[in-house]
């Protein structure tokens, strides 16, 4: 896990009025890693992801993705993101939603990218159905397809397995590992600690806007401990 740095946050701060959502986060995520970003509700995970995805500006500190200082309007073409619940145009089919998103940015890296990504996330058969009829699991799959359609080097995923059945969770887990093996960086937040433990190489636990612990999953678990016990200890101690 000694790849080059893909995501870097230094002293990242985000305030909404008097509320400090992110309070000086420091992170480094490398190429080929699946990185888990853990924390209780309201701990600043989504705010951090929004800053990295270019949807919000930091109040202080700096963030870099792929050696590019944020905010940078061009970075969207090189990263894929799924922040909070995926949302689509309900009157369009799943495929048409991806086609519209493809037209929204620069040309896709290769012809047939939409069919390939629909196949990769397991949505090929339902691709020509209107998105308004999709189940939550299918929306998650379409959201992941939208994040992957530009063949990004970095993926930012917020609770990507929400609403998925066990088979879907297994599919996503395999997909994240495959993406990391291709050299991509997967940065995901999740509440499913057992899933994080299975799929992530490294994790950071964030609480009240600060990273309280980070390291390799293998260093957290073992000797009768699992990630859930470590997480509960960390967040309850600080509560």
């Amino acid at each position: 896990m000694g790849g080059e740095t893909r995501i870097e946050c230094r002293g990242l701060v985000k305030r909404y009025g008097t509320v400090t959502a992110v309070d000086g986060i420091d992170l480094v995520v490398r190429a080929g890693e699946v990185f888990g970003f853990l924390g209780p509700n309201g701990s600043g995970k989504t705010s951090t992801l929004r800053i990295l995805a270019g949807l919000a500006s930091a109040t202080a500190g700096r963030a870099r993705i792929l050696d590019t200082a944020l905010p940078d309007p061009a970075i969207g073409a090189r990263i894929g993101s799924m922040i909070e619940e995926p949302a689509f145009y309900p009157w369009l089919t799943g495929r048409a939603n991806l086609e519209v998103l493809a037209l929204t940015g620069p040309a896709l890296p290769r012809a047939g990218a939409i069919d390939a990504v629909l196949d990769r996330v397991g949505l090929a058969e339902a691709a020509d159905r209107k998105a308004k009829g999709y189940s939550q699991g299918m929306r998650q799959r379409l959201g992941l397809a939208a994040a992957l359609v530009r063949d990004p080097e970095v993926l930012l995923l917020d609770e990507p397995t929400n609403g998925l059945d066990p088979a879907g969770i297994r599919d996503f887990r395999a997909l994240f590992r495959a993406l990391a093996e291709e050299g991509r960086t997967v940065f995901l937040s999740s509440h499913l600690l057992t899933e994080v433990e299975r799929v992530c190489d490294r994790v950071a636990v964030v609480h009240r806007g600060r990273v309280v612990e980070q390291g390799r999953v293998a260093d957290f678990v073992g000797a009768g401990r699992d990630l859930e016990a470590v997480y509960m200890n960390l967040t309850e101690d600080l509560a």
Partner: peptide
Amino acid sequence: KNVLAHNG
């Protein structure tokens, strides 16, 4: 957010 994720 989808629009801005693909075109900033």
